[in-house]
Design a protein around this nucleic acid. Sequence first.
DNA 1: CAGTATCCTCATAGATACTG
DNA 2: CAGTATCTATGAGGATACTG
Lengths: 132, 132
Amino acid sequence: MTYPKPPSPATAIRRRGDCYLAACLTREILDHVFSRWGSLVLGALLERKKRYSELRDQIGGISEKMLAQTLRALERDGLIERRSFPVVPPHVEYLLTPLGRECAGRVGDLVDWIESHVRSLARAQADYDEAD
Amino acid sequence: MTYPKPPSPATAIRRRGDCYLAACLTREILDHVFSRWGSLVLGALLERKKRYSELRDQIGGISEKMLAQTLRALERDGLIERRSFPVVPPHVEYLLTPLGRECAGRVGDLVDWIESHVRSLARAQADYDEAD
DNA sequence: CAGTATCCTCATAGATACTG
DNA sequence: CAGTATCTATGAGGATACTG
C-alpha cells in the first residue's frame, strides 16, 4: 500500500496563506470578507439568493455604489455568483457559490454571536466609559 | 414548580441586536470586529497574550496609530483586556477576555478558512480576470 | 517600551445624475 | 430594475517626531 509523499516544508507553506503577511493574497480576501459591507452581504445571501434591490433594502446604510463594488469583489473571489436574466426590466440574482457557502457560514456564526451578545457588549462599553 | 415568564415579543427583540440596522449597536461592534485590523488583532491574541510590540511586529503593515486605536476600541467593547505594569521600561500586555475568547474563536475560524482555501480563491480570481 | 501628538494625503465612500 | 459615471469630501490611515 502506498501513500502520497508528504509535502516538503516549502510546498506545505504554499498550500496555505498567511493573513499576517501584508502582501499575501489572503490579506486581500480578508479585507473583502472582513469589510464593513462584505460581511453583511455574505450574511444576507446565507439565507437565500437575493436580487440587487433586495440586498440594497436589507442592508441598512449601504449605498448603491458600495453594494455594486462589494458584490463585484466577492464575485471575483469566487464567493458569490451573479445570474443575469435578459429580460425587461432587468432581473439579476446573487447567490453563494459552494465556496462562498463555506465562508459565509463562518461569517454568519460571527455575526450571530455579536447579535446575541449585544447586551454584554453594551455593558462593557458603559463600564469602560464610566471609568474615565 | 414555576418557570420564568416567557419574554414578550418586544423584550425578545431587545435581547438580540440586528447588524442589518445601521443604527444598532451591533453594527458598531461588527465594524470593529470585521475591520481590517480588528480581525487580525483578535486572531493574534487567540494564540496567547501579547505585548504591544509583539502585535505590531506580527501584524504586517499595521501602523502604531492603528494598532493603538484598534486595541482601544476592542478593549472598550470588552473583548480584550489591557494589563499595564508600572516598571521602567513600560510593560503592557493585551489578552482576550472570556467574552473576547468566544468572539475571537469565531474570527479565527474564518481567518483559518481563508488561509486554507487560498488556492481556490486565487484560481477563482484568475478565472474571473481571464473572462474579461 | 509603549505609546501620544501633529500633520498630511489619498482612497473610500456618499450624493447625485444618468442609462441600457 | 440594475446598475454606471462623475464629483466631492470626510476621515481612515500613514509618516514623523516627541515623551513618560
